[in-house]
Design a protein around this nucleic acid. Sequence first.
DNA 1: CGGGTTCCATCGATCCCGCTCATGGAAGCG
DNA 2: CGCTTCCATGAGCGGGATCGATGGAACCCG
Lengths: 309, 309
Amino acid sequence: MTDLAPHELRVLVAVEEEGTFTSAATRLGTTQSAVSHAVRGCERKLGAVLFERGRHGARPTEAGARAVGYARRVLRLLATMGAEVRGAGADGPLTGTLRIVAFRSVAAHLLPPVLARLAERHPGLGTRVRIVREIGRGTAGEVADGRADLGLATLPAEGPPPVPGLVTARLYEEAYALAHPQGHPDPRRLPLVDWDENCGSYTRRWWREQDWIPPATVDVEDDAVAVSMVAQGLGMAIMPATALLGAPPGLAVTPLDPNPPTRLVGYVTTPELAPTPAVRALIRELRDLPLPEGLAPARTQPARPGATR
Amino acid sequence: MTDLAPHELRVLVAVEEEGTFTSAATRLGTTQSAVSHAVRGCERKLGAVLFERGRHGARPTEAGARAVGYARRVLRLLATMGAEVRGAGADGPLTGTLRIVAFRSVAAHLLPPVLARLAERHPGLGTRVRIVREIGRGTAGEVADGRADLGLATLPAEGPPPVPGLVTARLYEEAYALAHPQGHPDPRRLPLVDWDENCGSYTRRWWREQDWIPPATVDVEDDAVAVSMVAQGLGMAIMPATALLGAPPGLAVTPLDPNPPTRLVGYVTTPELAPTPAVRALIRELRDLPLPEGLAPARTQPARPGATR
DNA sequence: CGGGTTCCATCGATCCCGCTCATGGAAGCG
DNA sequence: CGCTTCCATGAGCGGGATCGATGGAACCCG
């Protein structure tokens, strides 16, 4: 019996991500001792040292990195197995629970109608939405780690998706616009409100082409906070259309003609989950969503990462 | 913790293959009671009845068949994991055994050179080829159920692949041609030899456009039998180029200009196995195979099943 | 250099899970 | 009705995983 049990696989993944036996243990809700034992057990079963232990925690060896990769795949497959076996009835009604992650603005403004229609068409299908900040690995990381079935993510304008091994497709493209207090005589003299999550890569090029710079910059934590600060007259912001959908009164939006920066929004899921009826139903609803003004469908390059070749 | 442990997966597979709790138990070197407990545990974890128990033993339900398929895939992945982690030396030599399924004509005429070159480049990598008739779910079904790592299959001209959840890509397209006895004055007056496996969907459209119909039809079991019957002068047949590769003397082939029916041949594997070095090596050899005359590379639409749309 | 901190390893006690061994019920067969 | 062949169930046991505590190693810092 040389196969690793699911809990051992989870330990390997946790250790690799946390970088430390101790924090892996807390993440798994267990003790450092158990993690130590589990890792040793894995190493004995596989016949290879998986992590270099040292002062700085645990770093995966060559073999360890490989093992962690396999561990993720096995765990994903097991998760898919559960989902698929439950929703067995061929073309019967879908059941189970879809775990969705999204960043705030999409979760607030685009997801509700999608989920409503999904629930209407598939009453047996539950959904659980978690909001994750699109920093670090963002929503794609949640999907890659098996903590969600589908994620809504911002995608790079071109090139491969940031997290390899996932299925990615574009949903829409949206322009950034200038949000400023209603009736302000010269909004460009106001301080710029920026927020952590706002990945500069989309707007950087645009800023370089401008011949004005904001007098000051205020950093806030969240785009919703930025919106409300602008609405209160405390600044102006360059925001994507989605974030401005629920704009409160007192906030005006002027487009950034003629060449506004844009960003791509799409979904991310795993190759195993993608063909699943439940995920497909959700994707269908996402695609069929009538886009609010300012959001343009981005049909091209549905894209798969590494499958072929 | 709803995941199934490896020993539980093994129990499911054994029960499905043995058809009986008792014999599954002896095969696993354990007791019937343990098997019963294990199966109930699986059912509880997955939330579905997996086997119909009755006088005749245990038959998998719809959900059970699905679960067993996943179980085989997970076990295979775990086995691969063990092999691969041990042989960690970066790009070290590949090891293990690739289980390949193919239908007869491909296995007989295309696979040998591929396997020879694969063996030459990766001496440590074993291969096992099983021939499966391309009826029912065909080779793709074997792959989906975890009984093979890669299958060579006929693909539908368009639309999604028949078995969802698998990775599919085209390899080549081949034309059907008229096979008839050498020197026969009017082969179209001979009876048509057809065989079970010959999925009519490829040739049906072509037949509709013809202004002649064969005087009779003979059904045989296998395309090899059809070839030899034609060679003996007992009829004529409309056959794909691959099946005619080893054509015996006495058999002549005339193309069906100008618009012959064609069929697509490609490979099928699972998303977990596709990134595996061994499978990738095999796919590389398949793609690099110099195609015999009559077989045209079909580059377009490398294709993923359900990912997009 | 000697506390303080942060890692991992190890050890004995404990607990849980899975196994075995019985036994029982149901369904066919003669 | 006894025999056989299925699977289900319950009691008891044993091994393995977990826990909590302790120890040791490496590093930081005044």
